[in-house]
Amino acid sequence: MTDPPSGEAAFLVPGTVEAAVEALGAAGAVAVAGGTSIGLLVGQGLLAPSVLVWLGRIPELSVLEEGDGQMSIGATTTLATLAAHPRVRTAVPALADAAASVGNTRVRAVATIGGALGHADPRQDLPPALLALDARVEVAGGRGRRHLAIDELIDGFMSTDLGPDEVITAVRVPLVDGRRSCYLRFTPGSADDYPTVAVAATAEVADGVPTAVRLAIGGAGPAAYLVPEAEQVEGAPEGRWAAEVAEVAEAAARRADPVDDRLGSAAYKRRMVAVWARRALERCLGADGVQP
């Protein structure tokens, strides 16, 4: 007689990051934060961990504070907390809007920023927003702490640069005076669905002239990606950047590497990247009359 595959697992509740890292050194150990992704994988029989390391009782990971020109968001900060945070909403609305868009009320109530990034699903809302905002991720592991850009952390389809004994500890988002940001997701079927494509844009606009323009795209490749051509818009005089925006939007579409799935064909998603990239830039730059 043998035991069924989904047998007993140890459940550990470390109180510090160091203890969590040590616990994750065991074979078959998996970090759990909000538990929505892990709960889904375990429930569907796709994951049979031998050790669950719950990060929900580590004080360091739940910090959400401003300092040194940045917002430090502890890894176990929930998406609901992020979406409702007054400073996040005013300073980095793209992040608040992305957090408010994930899943449903129940998911947002428990899912965490660290867990979302660790899951690395290309249809997720947070990666494009954080990429556009030039956020950096702090990771702790057996080799100490290191810092990664979003597109260094998420290095492919459902894949991260994290070692087996590493955990995300915090996400740091620069706070820049006068920076605008917006996040738009295209859900033409059900609003609760994953986006067909998602676009985040940030820019600083002084006297109508944009600088520091960043554009990131989600849902249209194995991972969210930046569109470096966005800098073409920089310096264009007020209201005179329509041609540049159109070019950047086409560049964003050229960089897309989407797949055919139920959310749309690759060809359609590519076209939608161009439309929504343009809309996000316009929104961010104020072209549609809406001040972000």
Binding site: G189, S190, A191, D192, D193, R262
Partner: peptide, 16 residues
């Protein structure tokens, strides 16, 4: 059948 669950076979929600 490729839509094998309610994440893929979307029913209308209260806001849809």
């Amino acid at each position: 059948v490729w839509a094998t669950n309610l994440a893929e076979f979307r029913l209308p929600t209260a806001q849809d």
